[in-house]
């Protein structure tokens, strides 16, 4: 589904990703871990198409398409979803209007007919139940005045609405209490299918108790330096990252 080859990325002349390789197949869950400032969020942003990042070398192939040539919204319509670490507040744009516009456009891209208003509302209600979201959020502006937990739930809700093929969850667990974490994780697990894949970017092992990864990658200095299974996450939790740095030096 996703092949990243020798990816180099710079921001304002500073190289953040330094030759990253990653392959993700349908049905898989990948966890990316690593110390602060190693380029995890940069990777997520680049896949989504944030123009602040300059790809200087390498390629990203997504379902045999050159992802780097697609616009931000076409990537989204192709099924790339980014759960933002810090979802932006958009005053004046209601959640309903926002989701309706997004869904209509994605359906149009896929050659599907738009949902009627009634169908849409029903669909939305269904998906809200999944993340235990309250109805009143409908009329609120996107993320405006949401608590940290609500914002993250809102990201998962949108993911449920848009049914992406590749979901990248950037630090979705940060700032969540244990109940919210459970809800978010359950949402993600329920949305999992053999056709889609998930990349979970996280600091902590605890999210991985709920979303069990098939692969765990460790990022350091802009590259993936170690890959293992679930047990690697546990090892990191126990020993920290220093031993990997030491291993690299050796």
């Amino acid at each position: 589904m996703l092949q990243i080859k020798d990816l180099h990325v710079s921001v304002q002349g500073k190289e953040i990703l330094t030759g990253l390789n990653l392959e993700v197949n349908a049905g898989e869950v990948h966890a990316i871990m690593g110390p602060n400032g190693t380029g995890k969020s940069t990777l997520a942003s680049v896949i989504a198409g944030n123009e602040n990042y300059e790809v200087t070398k390498g390629e990203i192939i997504y379902n045999s398409k050159n992802l780097l040539e697609l616009s931000i919204e076409d990537r989204a319509r192709e099924g790339v979803f980014l759960g933002f670490q810090y979802p932006v507040e958009i005053p004046g744009v209601s959640m309903t209007n926002f989701m309706r516009t997004a869904l209509d456009e994605i359906r149009e891209y896929r050659g599907e007919k738009p949902l009627s208003a009634a169908q849409f509302l029903k669909y939305m209600k269904q998906k809200k139940a999944l993340v235990e979201m309250q109805d009143k959020l409908n009329n609120r502006s996107v993320n405006e005045g949401f608590s940290g937990g609500e914002k993250k739930k809102n990201e998962i809700f949108q993911m449920a609405m848009l049914e992406p093929k590749l979901a990248i969850l950037d630090e979705t667990d940060s700032g969540l209490d244990i109940d919210a974490l459970r809800i978010v994780a359950n949402g993600v697990t329920k949305l999992k299918s053999p056709e889609n894949a998930t990349i979970v970017i996280t600091h902590y092992q605890r999210l991985l108790d709920y979303i069990v990864p098939d692969f765990v990658h460790v990022m350091y200095e802009g590259r993936i330096v170690k890959t293992g299974d679930k047990s690697l996450a546990l090892e990191l939790e126990e020993k920290g990252y220093d031993w990997i740095k030491d291993e690299l030096k050796a």
């Binding site: 989504a48 932006v88 958009i90 744009v93 209007n97 891209y109 502006s141």
Partner: peptide, 26 residues
């Protein structure tokens, strides 16, 4: 707001409509 534009477009909304949404909100 460019950040809001990115967010909207990441959800699959084209640039023109994202602009519209933000202008109507404005």
């Amino acid at each position: 707001d460019m950040e809001a534009m990115f967010y909207l477009m990441q959800r699959g909304i084209c640039e023109r409509n994202a602009k519209m949404l933000l202008m109507v909100a404005f």
